[in-house]
Amino acid sequence: MMKYGDEHAEHRFTLSFAERESRGQWLDIFLDIHKEADEMFPEDLVDPSVLVICNSQGDIVQIVLHDEGCDCEFQFTYAEKAQIEKFVQEHVNV
């Protein structure tokens, strides 16, 4: 997780399913993030979570990092997005 424009920084975390919501042709999947032992998230990131937006076929269209339930100035790295995609494919019935 890193602020837009900052240097690349990988963070270790686990995920858990929170909820899902259908919006017409879109399916929103909300995930909770749990930092691993001894991991420090960026100090400006207060309460991170994940919004995964899928199309009607179940394909992931976008992965958004939320802070306190809202879009924020942070983004996931490619490796972190891959971890989230894998979690959704294995643990969420899309």
Rank of each mutant, 00 (worst) to 15 (best):
G58E: 05
P48T: 07
D44R: 14
D47W: 02
R12N: 15
T77A: 04
H11I: 07
S22M: 12
Q25S: 12
L15Y: 06
K86D: 14
Q75D: 09
D44K: 14
D47V: 05
Y78A: 12
D6E: 15
Q89Y: 11
A37M: 10
F87K: 09
S22R: 10
A82Q: 13
K3W: 09
V92P: 01
Y78H: 09
H66C: 13
Q62I: 01
S56Y: 11
E85H: 07
K35C: 09
F30Y: 14
S56D: 13
I29D: 03
L15Q: 07
Q57M: 13
K86T: 14
L65N: 08
F76V: 00
F74V: 01
T77Y: 04
E90P: 01
H8A: 10
V61N: 14
Q83Y: 07
I29H: 02
T14V: 06
E43I: 10
E7A: 14
V64G: 04
C54M: 13
R12C: 11
D47N: 12
G58D: 03
A18R: 12
C72A: 08
Q75H: 11
D38S: 08
Q89A: 14
L51Q: 12
A37S: 11
K3F: 10
R23F: 02
Q75C: 11
V92K: 07
Q75N: 08
A82Y: 02
H34M: 11
H34R: 14
H34N: 10
D32F: 05
E90K: 13
F74E: 04
S16V: 03
H34W: 12
R20I: 06
D38T: 02
F87Q: 09
I29G: 01
D59P: 06
S49N: 04
L45H: 03
C54L: 15
D47H: 07
T77W: 05
N93S: 15
L15S: 06
M40Y: 10
F76W: 02
F41L: 15
E80H: 00
V50S: 13
E39N: 08
G24A: 00
M40Q: 14
F17P: 00
E85T: 13
E90I: 08
D28T: 00
Y4L: 15
T14F: 10
I60N: 06
F17G: 03
D67L: 07
E21P: 00
G69R: 08
D28L: 08
E73N: 13
F76R: 00
P42A: 05
A18W: 05
T14L: 11
K3V: 07
E80Q: 08
D6V: 06
I53N: 09
E10F: 08
L51V: 02
A18C: 07
E85A: 13
M2L: 15
E39W: 09
I63Q: 01
E7K: 14
